[in-house]
């Protein structure tokens, strides 16, 4: 990385601010994260495989990634709908609703966790209507999906909303003038324009769901092989002083989130190119 600002800049302070930025970034983020990498590098290959490919751990990947996929899917559908309604249709209390969308960002995950577990329990506000119909949410994988849907919702809405705001009305007018029905305009003209942002929001919600811990453990029931998420496996291993195992599983998770980060960056680049 070349650390010299271009010379035609009259503003001062590049040296100290950049120096401090790199120092603080290294101390707080890069060095601690590299601890994980070095610790993993110290593991034997067979020990690593044994830790990350144990049946209980494999089941937790399936549950975590499967539930995150389902939740991101739900959010992709309803998130786009919410964003569309917030931008296009007037209704009373719109500003309030718009602010409320960010609740999952602001509400601590532990609070979300115990509240969802209570609302969806057998005698909770929602659970009491679902349970008699044979739908169990609390302490099942369905509960994990609900919790991940809750925390992932703002990601889709806030990614898609600005794109809908920027849509040029002339495009829709042109489609309408050329004889397209409203539904055709949406499917053939608007939806392709929204696709990059919807995919970005989907990926962000998915990534958040995969790493989430606090809001899930209370509602999940945490039964091994059935409703145990990978972050919980890491915690359990730590509590048993199995640092090697915890590190190995954490490395797999970290790799997964780096791949997701890469995908998200590519998607964002794509949607920016689309916007131009």
């Amino acid at each position: 990385m070349k650390l010299f600002a271009k010379h035609n800049n009259v503003l001062p302070g590049f040296g100290p601010t950049m120096g401090y930025t790199l120092l603080y970034l290294s101390l707080v983020v890069l060095i601690p994260l590299s601890a994980l990498v070095f610790k993993t590098a110290g593991l034997s290959w067979s020990g690593f495989l044994e830790a990350v490919a144990a049946p209980r751990v494999l089941a937790s990947y399936r549950i975590t990634f499967g539930a995150a996929l389902a939740a991101a899917g739900i959010n992709a559908v309803f998130g786009v709908l919410v964003a569309w309604v917030l931008v296009r249709y007037p209704f009373p209390g719109k500003r309030l609703v718009d602010a409320l969308v960010d609740l999952p960002f602001a509400l601590p995950t532990a609070v979300a966790g115990i509240t969802l577990a209570t609302v969806y329990s057998a005698n909770g506000w929602v659970g009491r209507y679902l349970e008699p119909r044979g739908i169990k949410v609390a302490f099942t994988p369905l509960g994990i999906i609900i919790a991940m849907t809750f925390i992932g919702l703002p990601f889709v809405v806030r990614t898609v909303q600005p794109v809908i705001e920027e849509l040029d009305a002339e495009i829709e007018e042109a489609a309408a003038c050329l004889g397209a029905s409203r539904w055709q305009t949406f499917c053939r003209v608007l939806f392709p324009l929204l696709t990059p942002s919807v995919l970005t929001g989907f990926a962000l919600a998915f990534a958040r769901g995969v790493g989430e811990y606090g809001s899930i453990i209370f509602i999940a029931g945490n039964m091994p092989m059935v409703s145990e998420i990978t972050p919980l496996i890491i915690i359990t291993k730590l509590e048993q002083y199995d640092y090697q195992g915890a590190t190995a599983v954490a490395t797999v998770m970290l790799l997964a989130s780096f791949v997701l980060l890469l995908v998200i960056n590519l998607l964002q680049k794509w949607s920016r190119r689309y916007a131009e």
């Binding site: 970034l25 790493g211 972050p231």
Partner: peptide
């Protein structure tokens, strides 16, 4: 200021967002 590696730096600053909270404690 403009400098090379700006995008990489921004990605690195965002890194803690994409790390699971559990891993943030573990390190």
């Amino acid at each position: 200021f403009s400098f090379t590696g700006k995008n990489l730096l921004i990605t690195l600053i965002d890194l803690p967002f994409s790390v699971s909270p559990v891993i943030s404690g573990l390190i």
